[in-house]
Simulated scan of single mutants.
Amino acid sequence: MKLIIVAVLYLFFQGANGQSLNKLTIPNGSINYFTAGQGEIVVFIHGGQEDYKVFIPQVELLSNEFQVVTYSRRYNFPNNNEIKGEYGVKTEADDLKALISMLDKPVHLVGHSYGGSIALEFAVNNPEMLKSLTLSEPALVNWLNDIPNCGSWYETVQEKLINETKDAFVTKDTTLIMKELFEFFAGADIQNQIPPEVLSMLKANLREMEALVNSPSGFDSPSPEDLKALDMPIMILTSEKTMPMLTCTNSKLIEIKPQATHHHLLGAGHEMWMTNPKELSVYISNFVKN
């Protein structure tokens, strides 16, 4: 499975270059974004150690029906902002508010992984700026302790992802840093199996991971009660072969919002936007239209 993901990453990033980006000024820096199409606005928020290119297939598949926006978050390629102060979903939600304010009308918001946590934070505090919310396996780490049989994953995140990666960043050795991240997310250090172009892309997005693991609130997110209070149309996307800790939080999402539209992708993993772009574009299109 890991080698399949590597192959998909390689093919994906071979075809995700050459876009002409726009730049938006934010506090203490700027963010780059790409947009195409007209009509209802769909804004995509990428996950950790990714950038705007993850959703270029959605731009290509959906921009004949909607205005599609994909952007690179504060510390992700090609942005070059200096890490300043405490960082987390609240920081990113403020940046997102600047982007949506510039678009000047309510949008359909789609957030994946850590981007899903940002989307939820934004929705809780700015519901009037959204027409709908789509969450694909948001990284709701602080929910794990309160989900039966899932608390051990909270401890694993603290020790294996946050503490060990933080120690690796002190060395400034990107190979060691990537080893820690691969061992957590892929289960093994697979650097020598990844094409140089893909490994370079992942390293170009390390600044975000550095900010996350060094911030006391890096993995905070809104509570289940906050999600329960939202009354906008919501779609939840989950995958069959995702990480066990995400299986925990995915189940909790569906329990809290049983009335939400839900699609479960058989055979897919957490990298669903790279492996199943056409299937997901149909779900997004139908949800936005309805």
Rank of each mutant, 00 (worst) to 15 (best):
A260H: 15
V8N: 06
I56H: 10
S251D: 12
G267D: 06
V288S: 12
E208N: 15
G85D: 03
L133F: 14
G88W: 03
I41K: 05
I4Y: 08
F66G: 00
L62T: 03
H270A: 04
S239N: 04
A16F: 05
E128S: 10
I194W: 01
A93L: 03
S20K: 14
I147N: 11
F12C: 06
N17T: 05
K179V: 00
I256T: 15
L61S: 10
L265D: 02
N149W: 04
T165F: 04
V8M: 07
V157D: 11
V282D: 06
L9W: 03
N214P: 07
N125I: 03
L24Q: 13
I256N: 12
A229L: 02
K241L: 14
S117G: 06
V54K: 08
F182S: 01
L230V: 07
K228C: 13
F287K: 15
F66P: 04
W143L: 13
S285N: 04
L96P: 01
K166P: 10
M178T: 00
V89L: 08
W153D: 13
N81R: 11
S132D: 13
E279T: 06
D226Y: 07
L120Q: 12
P106Q: 14
K23V: 11
I118P: 07
N76R: 02
N192D: 10
E225Q: 11
T91R: 02
K179W: 00
L246F: 04
E271C: 05
E164P: 01
P57D: 04
E208A: 10
I234G: 15
W153K: 07
T91S: 03
L9D: 08
I194Q: 01
L61Y: 13
A229C: 00
K257A: 07
K131T: 15
R74C: 09
M129V: 10
T25L: 13
N64Q: 15
R74D: 05
I236R: 15
A204V: 05
G39N: 09
H264R: 05
N32I: 06
N192G: 09
G29L: 11
K84P: 09
Q193P: 08
M272L: 04
N125F: 00
R207I: 12
V6G: 04
V288A: 12
E180M: 00
T175F: 00
